[in-house]
């Protein structure tokens, strides 16, 4: 009744339709924890860690034994930097004391010390369009999905999947990432979104809010993931369109994602995020 060619064409159309539906559904929720994902992390990540450590080892040998040419100059500049840091440290101590006094005056509750775990980055997504990395700590160290990942420079991302010894981190530069944020000076609120590049954008900032280049962006703590006050980046460009209620704000993140080697996972920040299906 039907020719072989016709059956093949119909089959291909059905296959394409099913494929598009599956991709469409999976694109809506890119953070489901799958058993396959955990098994793959468990099997492959030790090799990634081995390779990463090998490269580190060779690099360290190079740095320590062969690359001594500029060490003397570097030492001088480090001594200078240390002096400056000491001065800064002194002023910060003063600030800390005055802050403590003011805090007691205002009867603020002291902020709890956060429990963090240090993890090394052992792998990254090969596609330039997807911004995720694999770290060498997992559920055995208390890491769970939804936990915030930071560096001393600022916010890095959040855990999207975890096996016993490894976890996957969605970086804030990924298009699927969103962080509720504030400008430090004017307290204008917006959502920091990834651009799949080395920049971020701050969405939903009202036009009437005055934002200037160089303004520091910090987390607002209202998304239930990142604790309040963590640095995200600084404003690089502000575009106020002639129409519309929002302005376009572009941010340069403080974290250098090209050189991300170690991160801190905040274990007890808040309740881990529960990913809900749309």
């Amino acid at each position: 009744m039907f020719s072989k060619k016709m059956i093949m064409i119909v089959g291909a159309i059905i296959l394409i339709a099913v494929n598009i539906i599956i991709l469409s559904v999976n694109s809506q929720d890119r953070t489901p924890s799958t058993r396959i994902g955990q098994v793959a992390l468990f099997l492959v990540s030790p090799f990634q860690e081995f390779a990463s450590n090998g490269i580190h080892f060779v690099r360290n040998i190079w740095r320590n034994y062969f690359d001594l040419v500029g060490v003397s100059q570097e030492n001088d500049s480090l001594i200078k930097a240390l002096k400056i840091a000491n001065e800064k440290n002194n002023s910060l101590k003063e600030l800390e004391l005055s802050h403590a006094r003011l805090q007691s005056l205002l009867e603020f509750k002291p902020d709890l010390k956060r429990q963090v775990t240090v993890a090394a980055v052992v792998g990254k997504d090969p596609s330039p369009w997807l911004k995720t990395v694999v770290i060498d700590k997992g559920t055995d160290e208390g890491i769970q999905r939804g936990m915030p990942v930071v560096t001393p420079d600022g916010i890095a991302g959040l855990i999207t999947d975890a096996s016993s010894s490894y976890a996957k981190v969605l970086l804030i530069t990924d298009q699927n990432s969103a962080v509720d944020a504030l400008t430090q000076s004017t307290r204008s609120r917006g959502i920091v979104k990834g651009e799949s590049s080395d920049k971020l954008r701050l969405d939903y900032v009202l036009r009437r809010h005055d934002i200037t280049e160089g303004d520091i962006i910090i987390s607002s703590g209202l998304d239930g993931v990142f604790p309040k006050g963590l640095r995200v980046g600084y404003v690089h460009e502000v575009i106020k369109p002639n129409s519309g209620i929002f302005q376009k704000v572009f941010i340069i993140p403080y974290v250098d994602f090209e050189k991300l080697e170690e991160v801190l996972v905040i274990i007890d920040s808040l309740e881990p995020v529960k990913f809900s299906k749309p």
Binding site: N19, I22, L23, N26, S27, R30, P32, T34, I36, G37, V39, A40, L41, V44, G123, D125, P126, S127, W129, L130, K131, T132, V134, T160, K168, L170, D174, N176
Partner: peptide, 17 residues
């Protein structure tokens, strides 16, 4: 495809497709 999708942060099935 499955291995890469499992390790990647993209929508599951992207590499497989």
């Amino acid at each position: 495809g499955l291995a890469m999708d499992a390790l990647s942060g993209g929508p599951f099935g992207l590499y497989l497709t």
